[in-house]
Design a protein around this nucleic acid. Sequence first.
RNA 1: GUGAUUGUAGCUCAGCUGGUUAGAGCGCUGGUUUGUGGAUCCAGAGGUCGCCGGUUCGAACCCGGUCUUUCACCCCA
Length: 453
Amino acid sequence: MQKPSLPKGTRDFGPVQMARRNYILETIKDTFKLFGYNQIETPAMENLRTLTGKYGDEGDQLLFKILNSGDFLKDVTMNDLSTGYQNTLKKVSEKGLRYDLTVPFARYVVMNRNELTFPFKRFQIQPVWRADRPQKGRYREFYQCDADVVGTDSLVCEAEIILMIRRVFEKLNLTDYSIKLNNRKILTGIAESIGEAGNEGPLCVAIDKLDKIGWEKVQEELIGRGFGLSSIEKLSPLVNLKADQDEKLAFLKNFLGSSETGLQGVKELEDAFTILESMGEDLSHVELDIMLARGLSYYTGAIFEVKVNHVSIGSVSGGGRYDNLTGGFGLPGVSGVGFSFGVDRLYDVLEELELFPAESLKSTQILLTHFDDKGFRYALGLLSKLRAVGIQAEIYPDLTKVKKQLEYATKKGIPFVGICGDQEIENSVIALKNLESGVQESFSLDELIIKLK
RNA sequence: GUGAUUGUAGCUCAGCUGGUUAGAGCGCUGGUUUGUGGAUCCAGAGGUCGCCGGUUCGAACCCGGUCUUUCACCCCA
């Protein structure tokens, strides 16, 4: 006998958690569908070749690899073992668990390019796995809810992403949040303007920490990454910029004056804003954050990140535009933009803010209880009739004391019990007891149905 | 991957510098109540002290390893 346990960073979801998770997932699904996205699914495992090299060295480390079946050591030589794990790995593992939904999607697009109608809008809600070290809001198995559109450069997509995020948050009763927006081209432009052209990669990594560690530490990090003092000085006015949206844009245009790429980025932002305006929408919750830099290396245009304010959880949603999603699979020139909701984190946020509606937990409406075999059979007949009209009903399946049956209903959160005893059978009624108030009244079946519907 | 941290009943936790049969509250089961749950009172069940090994006359307690939890880096949802 061994005590059962779960692998590190994984969780079970009980009935209560599932009800709540479904509440979030349904809201997201609903929104994706409303905007014309179609659902797809891809396998949990992919060929390792598909996955490696797409997430950088760090990412490769975090991939879960699947051991080949059978004698997985049969091709391994002593030489392989002595020359580092890489050579051995290739021979013992050909598959891995997916690390995100974007790369499998890219693979899917390439494999189905001739069948798909572009622009192709898909959404995908599936678990992904990362061999990360778990922390709060950070698991080794978690769900992503991705929506991407590929095959168009239109900034309507960016605008619609903002609208989808706003709809989901509104439906979940989340009001205090910000959609931070930036453009990778602006970051490239900034690098150019401060005399560090081509170094936007390291620049982004450092700048991204601004919120967390502050400008002083970011400067130290930049120096550590080989940035010149004069470059950092040029960056300073941007970092300390306090201004509203329009002022920020104006400031940027001036700052980026010499960088064509940078100005293009600004224009893309403005165009997206204009599109929102044409749709009769405003910019509420949208915040231009010049210092926003997302880690993923494949973003080339807009980048988003959504943070719920005043909670202990990090970002709950993010995404951006990539020019060359499928290039790695031999199909260049497919541009797309997408974003993802982190359900697990949204769950934690809603829990922290106590925003789960009580209705999301309701399942069974009525439990039929009985005293003896006669009442049990009477209840069985009623049960089918209740279900036939769509009332979620169940019967206590064993002949036992009413006390036990009522306790069952209470614990399961069933609001009503229908008591079926001799008196009820005689009068062709059901004694309906409201478990919360304790009030009990007898009704005919028809009255009962009206009452519960 | 680096450095910390946690693990005792279903849950939350006590348990003295190593010393006999490891405790509490809540929960659970049964009774108090032969057609009615939540309350009271009574009784009861439930623990290889995460796991493996070591030190010791003796280990929940000390040591090593391992798994797990949480946290800071790294990175990220």
